[in-house]
């Protein structure tokens, strides 16, 4: 049987992690806090995708790997699949979860779009004037990192950003690097 813990354990740790990085360790450097939170997500995503793909054949192409994220990976984490997948067939994929669990318990002002990428600073942070929006967007660096870590473990380097302008829906945009 799969071992389980209460969802509130995971939520509590994530909330506290974001708050510690944003309010205590890097209170005046949101871009650094964001990068650390993303790095933690990356680490987790990397390890989880290693575990979830152990008994699978290799993915044949990018779309195959993205579908694995949408179906199996998402189901393991959220007990549901991604609701909508779009692609421009040139390396960009948009994954929409109509009711993203990790945001459903938060009260938020919808605002920003965030970008995470190992090679550049998450630049949108500094321009976000809205404090509450900024605080919430901080919570999205973790799942963005999670997806980037998972794909990177599958040999697909990419940048992942999130858009929560349609709450409770949340979209993750994956741009594969070529």
């Amino acid at each position: 049987m799969v071992k389980e813990v209460a969802e509130s354990c995971v939520e509590s740790v994530m909330m506290e992690m974001v708050s510690a990085y944003c309010n205590r360790f890097y209170a005046n450097k949101p871009e650094l806090a964001a990068r650390r939170i993303e790095a933690i997500g990356y680490q987790v995503g990397h390890q989880l995708s290693e575990r979830y793909t152990m008994e699978r054949p290799r993915f044949t192409d990018h779309l195959d790997a993205i579908k694995f994220i949408c179906k199996d990976f998402w189901s393991e984490l959220f007990k549901k699949q991604i609701d909508n997948l779009k692609t421009n067939h040139r390396g960009t994929f948009v994954l929409q979860d109509n009711r993203f669990r990790w945001l459903t318990r938060m009260s938020i002002d919808p605002v920003p779009v965030i970008v995470t990428d190992s090679s550049q600073d998450p630049s949108s942070m500094g321009t976000t004037e809205n404090k509450a929006g900024q605080a919430t967007s901080m919570h999205l660096y973790f799942p963005c990192g999670l997806i980037r870590g998972a794909l990177s473990n599958l040999g697909i380097p990419c940048a992942v950003s999130a858009d929560m302008s349609n709450l409770p829906a949340c979209s993750f945009v994956i741009r594969i690097k070529v």
Binding site: V44, E76, L77
Partner: peptide
């Protein structure tokens, strides 16, 4: 509501 314990232990560990 429960989740996979792996997610919890790996998140905490990371």
């Amino acid at each position: 509501e429960r989740v996979n314990a792996e997610l919890f232990s790996l998140t905490y560990g990371a």
